[in-house]
């Protein structure tokens, strides 16, 4: 289908003649209108901690995190703002299970992760066993794979019957550590730069848990990257 992956509009009908002449040879995944709904965060002033749109150096949430994890100099980078369009998009991607939609992020994910040196270990956040049974795939792994990024599944999700997205914000902040590093992978993280990747940064709870688990293995640094903030 030669159309926008999201709204289905045919490209032939949305391009004017000159646009067709200068259209990039690579096949577009989204039409111009849908593409413009994704707000690139690197073009905005951001919080130095969590990478959300923020005028000051650190946002209130990050000041709290600093108190809770004083030894972790955290810095999260996110690609796009988690706006209404993004929520709807991720709903289709994750809950309808439209894995192909992950291709939309390939270009930006690749650009962001290719900056890392080649010894950096890229670790996706694992999903719960329950989500895996319902959805069949880990959305973060799919996005990395589609972008051609090599990653290591070092983390394991210790099952918790409740689904994270159904909990309210407060409950989520109190949730116990759901991750641990798989025994055989501990050595892989030692003395390495580690980048942890997730799809959405909501409260930061998930990523702080993951970073906490990874830090036990003695990495030289930990960074986190998400598609949305």
């Amino acid at each position: 289908m030669n159309g926008c992956m999201w709204c289905g509009t045919h490209f032939d009908s949305t391009y004017s003649f000159t646009e067709l002449l200068f259209r990039p040879l690579k096949k577009e995944r989204l039409c111009g209108a849908c593409q413009s709904e994704f707000i690139l965060l690197r073009e905005c002033p951001l919080c130095r901690g969590c990478g959300r749109r923020h005028e000051d150096t650190y946002c209130q949430d990050c000041i709290k995190w600093q108190k809770l994890y004083p030894n972790y100099s955290f810095s999260n980078q996110s690609l796009f703002a988690y706006n209404v369009f993004a929520k709807e998009f991720m709903e289709a991607f994750k809950f309808n299970g439209d894995a192909e939609l992950g291709q939309v992020f390939s270009k930006e994910v690749k650009a962001m992760l290719q900056k890392e040196d080649k010894h950096t270990v890229i670790v996706p956040i694992p999903i719960s066993q329950r989500s895996k049974e319902i959805r069949g795939f880990n959305q973060t792994e799919i996005v990395l794979k589609q972008a051609g990024i090599i990653y290591q599944n070092c983390l394991e999700h210790i099952d918790n019957p409740e689904n994270q997205s159904k909990k309210d914000r407060r409950n989520r902040m109190l949730s116990p550590q759901p991750f641990h590093v798989i025994d055989s992978e501990v050595g892989l993280l030692k003395q390495k730069k580690v980048v942890i990747v997730d799809d959405v940064y909501t409260t930061g709870r998930t990523l702080f848990h993951a970073a906490d688990a990874v830090s036990q293995c003695g990495p030289t640094s930990i960074k986190t990257i998400t598609l949305f903030r």
Partner: peptide, 21 residues
């Protein structure tokens, strides 16, 4: 193909996915 609930890898239909995959 994508990892699937059947533990294997499967292709799926994007056209009618809103009605269930």
């Amino acid at each position: 193909s994508y990892p699937c609930v059947c533990q294997n890898r499967c292709k799926y239909c994007r056209q009618c996915i809103k009605l269930g995959k």
